[in-house]
Design a binder for these strands. Structure first.
Length: 660
RNA sequence: GGGCGAGUAGCUCAAUCGGAUAGAGCACCGGCCUUCUAAGCCGGGGGUUGUGGGUUCGAUUCCCGCCUCGCCCA
């Protein structure tokens, strides 16, 4: 809607430029004036043309305004300042169209999209950093789906890597357990309701200390670690069975944790199948055939299969070996992580020539989450073969991600490489104060820093479930004191919705490349720019309709045929049009978020709409309004706020309770 | 050594393709619950946008140098 008006204005301006000066411009910059009193749109077009036309900007602006014919949807144009052209919408017409249409236009290009997120090593509990990943990823999935895209959601599981190996080492060598013993331990944890991911969190930290704990044993323990890893990779032995048992149990816990936040997955592809189904062999053949990989015969990478790094020259000027090249196959024949990742991404795009087998793994309310397998069920949904992919992975992985893209490009898959997005974001760190509150020792030099990186290896961090539990406890206390009349179940559901809203908004309000310095004080805040603030605005609109005895839909329909113009500008109408204009931008924001892969813009938009509504709510008392037409508009203003907030919040994965 | 990101109010963050008076939240100070929910609202103070240059009618934004911090690669 807002976008349509923008296009109309742009077309009008272009036409004026053609008829006046016979010129075409590449882009017509349209922005919103600093105050709504100046109009809804402004363009600095005249400034840009001043030099080209050898005229004063103000003069040009005046000529353009004079030449502009009537533009559909607009009431008038004027020149402001040194040469801005301000445009005013026909507010009454705009309100009527905003009220009737809340639809999202179909996407320009409908691709089969694949979003991968969460991807936690299944050897310990999820922490706040993983929450940021999962919430960003899940929100982006919701945005893509809202825009009409078909999206598959994957959560990649590295179940055969060193992190899982470390926990297996802990169980076998620190705890002295055999496969049988581990099975009993897992059963015992399940029986007592103890969280296995928590138990392994501590064990993992202990193993890290153990490796370096005795200088005489360092080499021997390194060997144990490597042997364990190799046994897991090979499969078909007790070590691998322990790894499978532990990683699967922890994976289930991760899925349960994420489900608390409304986060679901379609498929869990695992590294074990990538290994055992020999994805790499097929990728290796392609990479060799296309010359992407070459065998290095000199220098430090002698005996390795290497690949040119993105951004480096084709050959070294001096003709020597490219020492900068990325090793894909080591001289001992083992494949690096990037190599396996290339094979996996060829599968994602349907370019590998081999598929996983699949079996159901985790049941959601209305669907199944599948997992990769060596042998699976005959009937399964089709996975992979995407046209565009998004990998939600923190910014530290930028280098390996760039290598995978470079390999795709080298193989001639330029289209796929262009539709490969590393959805990068900065880490969640802890403030020194938060770390000390949690009882960790913080070195004096670290205390002066704004944040400290979390480390699963050291057991340093805030566990996701602990944070969620704390949030629920805090919201539950509030709900209990505010609404003792509600049933236990209602209070529980309300507290959970608010807790999830607070957490999801907290993780989404920062732009992706900003490090979040985590602090319980901020994360547990329910005032100001927070999820509960947005939910509260919705609750207020609900309360209005409850007391008015009508619905938002009826209120919006009730505008038909009314003369609204007197109520949309002038004294006594402050704050009404602001709400309408804001609501009209929701689909624009959706589009912008997808184009830039930045959900924070929508979070900010929803907050601003809630602020606009609060302002409107203060200035206009709806239920006591006596002028019927004016009352209809005020009710519709609450209704359009309700409609747009509910839908924006849904895209952010936040639901608004009935009362709070 | 190379690459990426960042530096904006006391703190945490915004700022659309380079546009009008750099905006929010928190914290602080002062007000507002007898009209639709105070998890709210109103008002106030608070800025040399790290630094030095350049481009431009116009720079937080683009370019170059320097400083500081974080991450990644060797």
């Amino acid at each position: 809607m807002y976008l349509n008006q923008q296009k109309q204005l742009e077309a009008g301006l272009r036409e004026a430029l053609r008829s006046l000066y016979q010129i075409e411009v590449d882009t017509v910059v349209l922005e919103q004036p600093p105050e709504l009193a100046f109009g809804e749109y402004a363009t600095p077009l005249a400034f840009e043309l001043a030099r080209r036309l050898r005229k004063a900007p103000r003069k040009i602006a005046e000529e353009i305004v004079a030449a502009l014919g009537p533009v559909p949807g607009f009431a008038g144009f004027e020149v402001a300042g040194g040469g801005y052209i301000n445009a005013r919408l026909d507010r009454a017409a705009a309100v009527e169209s905003y009220a009737m249409s809340g639809d999202v236009p179909p996407p320009r290009q409908r691709l089969h999209e694949l979003v991968e997120h969460t991807s936690i090593n299944p050897n310990k509990a999820a922490h706040v950093g993983h929450l940021r990943n999962a919430i960003l990823g899940d929100t982006f999935v919701r945005l893509l789906r809202a825009a009409g895209h078909q999206v598959d959601v994957q959560n990649y599981i590295d179940n055969t890597g060193v992190q899982v190996a470390d926990v297996v080492v802990g169980l076998m060598h620190l705890e002295g357990l055999t496969l049988r013993g581990v099975e009993e331990w897992v059963a015992e944890l399940a029986a007592t309701g103890e969280r296995i991911d928590y138990a392994c969190w501590d064990l993992y930290a202990r193993v890290s200390l153990w490796y370096a704990g005795d200088p005489d044993q360092t080499e021997a323990r390194k060997k144990i670690r490597l042997d364990t890893l190799h046994a897991i990779e090979a499969g078909g032995n007790d070590v691998a069975r322990i790894a499978e048992l532990i990683s699967t149990a922890i994976l289930r816990r991760h899925l349960e944790t994420m489900l608390r936040l409304g986060i679901e997955y379609d498929l869990l592809p695992r590294e074990s199948e990538i290994l055992h189904l020999h994805f790499w062999d097929l990728a290796f053949e392609q990479l060799k055939a296309k010359g992407v990989l070459y065998f290095e015969t000199e220098g430090k990478n002698k005996g390795c299969w290497v690949m040119k790094r993105p951004g480096t020259a084709e050959t070294e000027p001096d003709g020597g070996p490219d020492e900068d090249a990325k090793v894909i196959v080591r001289s001992n024949g083992t494949v690096t992580y990037v190599g396996k990742d290339i094979a996996y991404h060829l599968w994602k795009f349907g370019l590998l020539g081999r598929d996983f087998a699949y079996r159901p793994f985790f049941r959601y309310a209305d669907r199944e989450c599948w997992i990769s397998a060596e042998t699976g069920e005959a009937n399964h949904p089709h996975f992979g073969g995407a046209q565009a992919i998004y990998n939600v992975i923190d910014s530290r992985q930028a280098d390996p991600q760039a290598n995978v893209i470079e390999a795709l490009r080298g193989l001639g898959y330029t289209e796929q490489a262009a539709h490969y997005t590393h959805f990068s974001y900065e880490m969640v760190a802890l403030t020194p104060r938060c770390a000390m509150e949690l009882g960790y020792e913080v070195a004096p030099e670290d205390q002066a820093r704004p944040y400290i990186e979390v480390s699963g290896r050291k057991g340093f961090g805030v566990k996701a479930d602990d944070l969620i539990d704390k949030l629920i406890a805090a919201t539950r206390a509030e709900v209990d004191s505010r609404h003792p009349e509600l049933s236990e179940a209602e209070r529980d559901a309300t507290a959970r919705a608010i807790a999830v809203g607070a957490l999801r908004y907290f993780m989404l309000r920062f732009t992706r490349n900003s490090v979040i310095a985590f602090d319980f004080k901020d994360a547990l805040s329910f005032e100001g720019e927070t999820g509960p603030y947005l939910q509260y605005a919705v609750v207020r609109t609900r309360s209005i309709f409850r007391k008015a005895g009508t619905t938002p839909e009826a209120a919006l329909a009730g505008l038909r045929g009314l003369d609204l113009a007197p109520y949309l500008s002038g004294p006594g109408t402050e704050g009404i049009w602001d709400v309408w204009l804001r609501t009209a931008k929701t689909t624009l924001l959706l589009d912008q978020c997808i184009q830039t892969a930045e959900p924070a813009y929508l979070a900010k938009h929803a907050f601003q709409l809630a602020q606009d509504f609060s302002n409107f709510y203060r200035l206009h008392h709806i239920l006591s309004e006596e002028d019927p037409a004016r009352k209809a508009l005020l009710l519709a203003t609450a209704a359009v706020t309700h409609r747009e907030l509910i839908r924006s919040l849904a895209w952010l994965g936040i639901s608004a309770p009935e009362v709070m």
